[in-house]
Write a protein that binds this DNA or RNA. Structure first.
Lengths: 180, 180
DNA sequence: GATTAATAGTTGCGTATGACAACGATCTAC
DNA sequence: GTAGATCGTTGTCATACGCAACTATTAATC
């Protein structure tokens, strides 16, 4: 259970010949289980985030946006929206809230008069760091239930899951209804 | 503030014994990585769900509630709320929407005149199955990128993550602010 | 057995979140 | 220089959620 998570490259084509066959007996069962398990994780994390938002000066979405800007360097509104999978109008408003609270600043781009570069203020940086520290401690507490090699496996897999999801969403263009 | 939820037992003992040492060098790094990776996964799944909701007759939260009732047998409003980590008022309204659409039915409990037992209608069962099938297919498509043993590992770990989160939330009573 | 307390569910209300469409401002192409 | 694309903002609407107050029912206490 500990070493199998160190597997192969993310693969683009389909080097794993049999894995993607629809006849794979466990595939659908695994899919259903993952669906259930991820749903549970998401619900409980959302709950935690809702509850936790009151601890700081920002809302849940503002927290995500702040972190995106702090981690991703100066971001345009469009980049922020793409980063958070939000409409640009929503991203603009979320940024607005952070600007009003003094955690972000809007800077005009000298090259292109249309774009707005969102940059964190010192206060924003400090707040983000504080939230990061608190949450990381919480996750550390959680991960301490697992052995180090299992933890590495979790991270590897969750990261790959995220990438696969993101790629899938990007490929579908974000509209699922046309296919139905 | 949100101490009403009485879902899982707090699961007193941690399964791992020695892993919780604070001196573990990689623990905090792992925690930070998991925090980032899970955030990404959650955002993209929320985006997908938002987008996907239009494919069916129900909203995202209604979809979760429907599945909870279908999978969990007849549920009271309180049980549904606990299941979804929602306030009972929200759960009541979500259920209301599903009742209006004919996917759930409210049944009075003969034993206790206060409780309402939510049961899926045949239409609700069919809709849930259809959504489950579609989503499972999507997850299967996603999982086909991974080897079967890796898939099993993913499920194992995500499931354990969910349980740990739930236990943690239950233990903390859902209020993080008191500790700060 | 009547009164009080506890519990289940609903509703009022405020807020947060998010999308879509329309708009002004700016840049690019011809 | 005009037409079109792009960036960001704002108007508007719908949904989601929690908290508090309320009703109806059950349980507890005397």
């Amino acid at each position: 259970m500990t070493t199998i998570y160190d597997f192969h490259a993310p693969r683009a084509g389909s080097p794993r010949s049999g894995a993607s066959l629809p006849s794979d007996p466990t595939l659908l069962d695994d899919a259903r289980r993952l669906y259930d398990a991820l749903s549970e994780v998401i619900r409980v994390i959302q709950f935690r985030d809702r509850d936790r938002a009151c601890c700081y000066d920002v809302s849940v979405s503002q927290c995500y946006a702040l972190k995106a800007v702090v981690d991703g360097g100066p971001l345009t509104v469009n980049e922020l929206a793409a980063n958070l999978y939000l409409d640009k109008s929503t991203a603009s408003r979320v940024a607005n809230g952070l600007v009003e609270k003094g955690y972000l600043a809007r800077a005009r781009d000298p090259e292109d008069g249309r774009v707005v570069r969102l940059v964190p203020t010192p206060e924003g940086g400090r707040l983000c760091e504080r939230i990061d520290d608190d949450l990381s401690r919480e996750y550390a507490d959680l991960l301490s239930d697992f052995d180090p090699d299992v933890r590495a496996g979790i991270n590897e897999l969750v990261t790959r899951l995220g990438r696969s999801f993101a790629a899938r969403v990007a490929a579908s263009g974000g509209s699922c209804c046309v296919t139905r």
